[in-house]
């Protein structure tokens, strides 16, 4: 199953006949099975599925952290398989933002430094105005000098989101960003991510198993056994839960 019906202005990221096989012989696992998907610019997409469905693998491959066994992945119009190691690194710095479930920040840098990290690595000058906006959006103005150890889980995730946004990447990948947070904080993070899309036109692809989190997105793609099995637009938590029930059997 492919493309969404709400027409985005362009494609931010795309997988074409993506296949990924781990191991060989006995223990071979087909994590992605000839999967094709498109994620439009300015859209908030969620990828869901049971464990082992391939959702994390799909995200890793699309983000350039892992390579496909077969098929292609595009970010913007760039085919990732054609990039050298250096170019991939540059891509991750400039065009892709990450929010992981945990361990998002470098422990020895303070919040400010973590936020500007990708840009500092690239040695590029950054738009102070934009960085300030981002910082204020996530509400961390008074925490900039603190190190991760001095921040709560929710605050750490906000720093991670700020970092992902600060470099204005083409696409942000979030892997279970609220997985380790309590419900209230989780909602806060999801709110930020939502506003990033609504107010600033950011593209976000989020992997999650939480229907509540999925309800923040514009579109949910359901995976099972390495394939897309369903898709839902304008999701709500109940509809997602129902769908999961359905698919679970």
């Amino acid at each position: 199953m492919t493309a969404a019906t709400t027409a985005p202005t362009s494609i931010a990221a795309q997988a074409v006949h993506a296949t990924k096989v781990y191991g060989s012989g006995d223990t071979a696992v087909r994590a992605l099975d000839d999967l094709s998907a498109e994620f439009g610019t300015g859209q908030y997409s969620a990828i869901m599925g049971p464990s082992g469905s391939g959702k994390s693998t799909l995200m890793h491959c699309m983000a350039g952290l892992d390579t496909l066994t077969d098929g292609q992945v595009f970010i913007g119009g760039t085919d990732l398989s054609e990039l050298s190691e250096k170019e991939l690194t540059q891509l991750r710095r400039e065009k892709v933002g990450f929010v992981f479930q945990a361990f998002n920040l470098v422990p020895t840098l303070d919040a400010q430094e973590n936020i500007t990290l990708p840009m500092d690595l690239g040695g590029s000058a950054y738009d102070d105005g934009w960085v300030d906006t981002v910082i204020d959006t996530v509400g961390l103005r008074d925490r900039l000098e603190h190190r991760p150890a001095e921040l709560s889980g929710g605050q750490q995730q906000r720093v991670a989101v700020a970092r992902a946004m600060a470099s204005r990447p083409e696409i942000i990948f979030a892997d279970e960003p609220t997985g380790n947070l309590d419900s209230k904080t989780g909602h806060e993070i999801l709110d930020f991510m939502r506003s990033a899309v609504d107010d600033f036109g950011q593209t976000i692809v989020m992997v999650t198993h939480d229907p509540m989190a999925a309800s923040y997105s514009d579109r949910v793609v359901f995976l099972a056994d390495g394939r897309i099995v369903d898709e839902m637009l304008e999701p709500t938590a109940e509809r997602v839960l129902d769908k999961m029930k359905q698919l679970g059997e």
Partner: peptide, 16 residues
């Protein structure tokens, strides 16, 4: 390892 992986994911080059 984890921290180094994070840095690489976020765009640190090998030389850096």
């Amino acid at each position: 390892t984890r921290e180094l992986g994070l840095l690489r994911a976020v765009g640190m080059s090998r030389a850096q």
